[in-house]
């Protein structure tokens, strides 16, 4: 089974988010970049499925050269080859068009990615890719088994989950508990250095959205600590006016 895993290169979840250049750019100073946590779940499940089916994993990122260490980490976790589409990921539509263009020539049985990136949180790319290449897209997927040519999935819905059966090929936006995150071992790290990382040029796509400016939420006021529940109820009733 040929699996394509698309990953994002995003600030670590503990990062302090700030902007520069008149609030038009993320301040990357001191920010550590990681594989998106949801993408990391997708990759972990792909590694397990590869072991079950004697398959292969291509890991893909649409990004500039700075994302290569993140792709190498994915190789260390267990992907066989990495591809970087050499472009700034302008918006979800731009990224989806790049992924669709890349995947259509390569006949993947399964395309996995995170349910959403943790920078822009759109959760849109998997659905867009599915529509662009004409295969089903399912998200957010919390369990994924492949039996022959069929996928058996559970998808989280509000208040529970639903069970889905769908033939390959399809695309899934993944989330926990689909698999445990995998930490690369020394052998993986060593072998990642020699696995292929190919750089491809993007196709021309006009993005449909553009960010004019960023802003931070207003600072939170100081917490009011009270001694007992009566004082708390009083605050909720008379200060917040929500009881």
């Amino acid at each position: 089974m040929k699996i394509l895993v698309c990953i994002t290169h995003v600030p670590d979840t503990t990062s302090k988010i700030q902007f520069i250049d008149n609030n038009t750019q993320l301040d990357k100073n001191g920010v550590q970049f990681i594989i998106g946590p949801y993408d990391d779940y997708a990759l972990a499940r792909a590694v397990e499925l590869k072991a079950e089916s004697n398959g292969s994993i291509t890991v893909l990122n649409v990004g500039e050269a700075e994302t290569e260490p993140t792709l190498r980490k994915a190789l260390a976790i267990g992907a066989d080859e990495a591809v970087r589409i050499n472009a700034f990921p302008k918006d979800a539509y731009f990224v989806a068009k790049q992924i669709a263009n890349f995947s259509k020539d390569n006949g993947y049985d399964l395309i996995l990615m995170g349910r959403e990136s943790i920078d822009f949180n759109g959760g849109m790319v998997h659905g867009m890719v599915g529509e662009l290449i004409g295969i089903p897209s399912i998200s957010p997927v919390m369990k994924l088994e492949i039996e022959g040519s069929k996928g058996k999935l559970s998808r989280e819905i509000e208040g529970g989950k639903e069970f889905i059966e769908v033939d390959l090929p399809f695309i899934a936006g993944c989330q926990e508990p689909i698999a445990e995150w995998k930490i690369p071992n020394m052998r993986g790290i060593m072998s990642a250095r020699t696995k292929p990382l190919t750089v491809k040029e993007p196709v021309d796509v006009v993005a449909q959205t553009v960010v004019n400016s960023y802003e931070l939420p207003p600072a939170k006021g100081a917490v009011k600590i009270v001694d007992n529940v009566d004082q708390l109820v009083d605050l909720l009733k008379n200060d917040a006016k929500i009881l």
């Binding site: 959205t209 553009v210 004019n212 960023y214 931070l216």
Partner: peptide, 13 residues
Amino acid sequence: IFTGKAFAETAIS
């Protein structure tokens, strides 16, 4: 964006 840590004024073309 950034899981509630920021906002983006976004133009749709």
